[in-house]
Design a protein around this nucleic acid. Structure first.
Lengths: 316, 316
DNA sequence: CTGAAAGCGCTAACAC
DNA sequence: GTGTTAGCGCTTTCAG
C-alpha cells in the first residue's frame, strides 16, 4: 500500500506538500496541487487514519456505554446519538456492559488509550467516583443527572415522571399498586422509583416491587407473581412497554380485563405499547441521545434536562 | 501524559524492555519486570492504542453497515455481532447508511484507511462490484448470499422462506394475497419476495405490493391502502412484525377480525408479534450476526446458511 | 509557496 | 536478557 512519501516521490514534491493538498491547505501552487492529486488518483491512495489520529490526538469517534443492545430503551438513545454522529462525520462505537462493572471500567480506559474522544454513559454500574477521573482523558457525558462539574449530562427528571405515573394510578382509585424495575437497589433508577412510590403511596410492601425485568417474558413472570400475591395489587407501573406487554398478556390469559381488573402503565412509548394501546411515559430517549452526543463533541459539561410526557391510553 | 520512553527512563531500562513487559514477553528478568511495572503503576500509564495499532496494522475492531431506519431486524443482527465481539475483545463501530450509497461507500473506505479490520454488511445499497474491491483492504462479510469468492457470508434462504410463508397462506385458502417490503425493486430482498410470490400465486397485481414499510405507522398506512383496494386482498405477508402489528391495528379498528377477515404474517419474531400472537417467520437474525462476526475475525470467506423457522400463531 | 526535519508513541529486528 | 535503532504513516514547525 502506498504511503504519503510514495506519493511525494512520484509527484516530485515533498511530503509536506502532499500533506497540504490532503488537508486542503491553501498555500500550494495550483500546478503542484494538480500533480499531487494526479498521483493520488492514479495510486488510489488513502491516508492512514491511525497515523493521522495519532499525531492529531483526536479520533473523531465516541463510544456509547450501554448495558444491553437488545433493549428498546437503550436503542432509542443510541439511535439519537447515531442521528447526530452521521451528520457531523463522527464514528460511534458500541460498548455493551451487561452491567458488568469491570467491563465498564475497561471501556473507560479507551479514553485514556486515546482510542475515543469521548464516551456517553447511558447507564452505569460503577459509582461516579470511579468513572469521573477519566474525564481528564476525554469527554464524559451521562444520561442521568450528575453533580460532577466535569461531566455533562442530558437527563430526564425520572423522579418527577415516576411520581406522575403513580399519581395517575392513585387518582384512578388504585391503592394497591406494584411496579417493576430492571436492577435492584444498586441502580439509581430503581432508587428513584422506590422514593416516588413512597411519596405517593407511603409504605412499600416488598412483594410489590419486582426486579430483574427486561423483556416480555420477564413481564409475564412478574404478572404471575403479582396476581398470585396474597394482597393482590390492582395496578402496576412497568419499567418499559415490553415488560408491560408481557404483563398484559398474562392478565388477558386469565380472562381478566385491562384496565378494569388490572391497570398497567409502561414506559418509552414503544411499538408494542402502541399496538396494545398502553398508557405510557415517554421519556424521549431519542432526544436524550441527540443531546448527549452534542455535549460529547462540544466537550461540554452542561446539564440539559429533557422533558418527558405521559401518554394516557387505554390500559389505565 | 506519560509515554513509553518516560517509563523506560524512570525504570532505568530501554523502551524495548518496557514494551516487552507491556506485551507479556517472557524474555524479561523478574527484577526489571517488577521495576517497570512499578513505574507503570505509579504513573498510571496506559499505552496509546493508536500507536500500537498503527505499527501492528490491526485495530481489533470491525464495523457494521446497516440502514438503521429504526428497523428492529438490523438491531437483532447487531446484537448477535455484539455478543461475540465482547467475548473476543473486539470493538464494534456502527455505520448507519439510511440506504445512502455514497455514505455506504464512505464507510468501506474505513477499511482502506486502516481504521477497521473488517466490515459486516447487513444490507447494502451499492452493487457488489463496487463493494467487493475493498476486500483487499480488510475482511468483508455479508448477511446475504454472495457469490464472490473473497466475501464471506452468513445468510438465510430468503427465497425459500418467502415461498413457505406464501404457501401457508395459499393452503389456508387465500388467493388474493398482498405483501409489504422496505425498499423497492433495487433491493435484493424485495426482488426475492416478488419472485417467491409469482412462484406461489402467479401474476402479481401491482397494487398488492406496498413498499416503503419500516414501522408500525407504515403498516397502518399499508393496511388502509390494501383494504380500500378494488380487489381487496384477504391476507398480507408483512416484512416485519412491527409492520404486521400496524396492519392488525388498522384491521381491528375497522372491527374486522384477524385472521377470519384478514390474515397476517410477520417476520423476525419480535416482541410486538408475540404480544399480538402473530404468525411470523423467524429468520434467526441474532445467529446471523454471530456467524457473520465469526467470519469477519477469522477473515474467512465461508458461506454459512442459517436455518429459518416458521412460527404459526393466531393471525393466520 | 516549499521542503527538511523533528516528532507522535509504539514494536521488532538485530546485535551484544 | 537487554538495548539500539529503524521504522509505522502522518503533521507541523521552521527556514528559506
Amino acid at each position: 500500500m502506498a504511503n504519503i512519501s510514495d506519493i511525494a516521490k512520484l509527484a516530485g514534491v515533498s511530503v509536506s506538500t502532499v500533506s497540504r493538498v490532503l488537508n486542503r491547505n491553501p498555500y500550494v501552487s495550483e500546478s503542484k496541487r494538480l500533480a499531487v492529486q494526479r498521483v493520488i488518483d492514479e495510486l488510489d491512495y488513502t491516508p492512514n487514519r491511525l497515523a493521522v489520529d495519532l499525531i492529531r490526538r483526536e479520533t473523531k469517534s465516541i463510544g456509547v456505554i450501554l448495558p444491553y443492545t437488545n433493549n428498546q430503551a437503550f436503542d432509542q438513545i443510541l439511535h439519537g446519538i447515531l442521528n447526530r454522529s452521521v451528520e457531523l462525520g463522527y464514528t460511534v462505537t458500541v460498548l455493551p456492559t451487561k452491567y458488568d462493572a469491570k467491563q465498564e471500567l475497561g471501556y473507560m480506559h479507551m479514553l485514556k488509550s486515546k482510542r475515543l474522544d469521548g464516551i456517553v454513559i447511558t447507564s452505569r454500574s460503577n459509582p461516579w467516583e470511579k468513572l469521573a477521573p477519566f474525564a481528564k482523558y476525554g469527554t464524559i457525558v451521562a444520561c442521568e443527572y450528575v453533580e460532577h462539574p466535569e461531566i455533562g449530562c442530558a437527563y430526564l427528571d425520572r423522579y418527577a415522571s415516576f411520581v406522575e405515573a403513580f399519581a395517575l394510578l392513585k387518582e384512578k382509585g388504585h391503592t394497591r399498586v406494584a411496579f417493576t424495575t430492571a436492577r435492584r437497589e444498586q441502580s439509581s433508577s430503581t432508587q428513584l422509583t422506590i422514593q416516588a412510590y413512597r411519596r405517593v403511596f407511603g409504605e412499600l410492601p416488598p412483594e410489590y416491587h419486582l426486579s430483574n425485568c427486561y423483556n416480555m417474558d420477564d413481564g409475564i413472570r412478574a404478572a404471575r407473581l403479582l396476581l398470585d400475591a396474597p394482597r393482590r395489587p390492582t395496578a402496576v407501573y412497568a419499567n418499559g412497554d415490553e415488560v408491560a406487554a408481557g404483563i398484559v398478556q398474562y392478565v388477558k390469559s386469565l380472562h381478566m380485563l385491562v384496565p378494569e381488573d388490572f391497570a398497567v402503565i409502561g414506559q418509552e412509548n414503544q411499538p408494542v405499547g402502541i399496538a396494545l394501546d398502553l398508557t405510557t411515559v415517554d421519556h424521549r430517549l431519542v432526544q436524550v441521545g441527540e443531546q448527549a452526543f452534542n455535549l460529547a463533541i462540544r466537550k461540554s459539561a452542561d446539564k440539559i434536562e429533557i422533558p418527558y410526557r405521559l401518554i394516557v391510553r387505554k390500559s389505565t
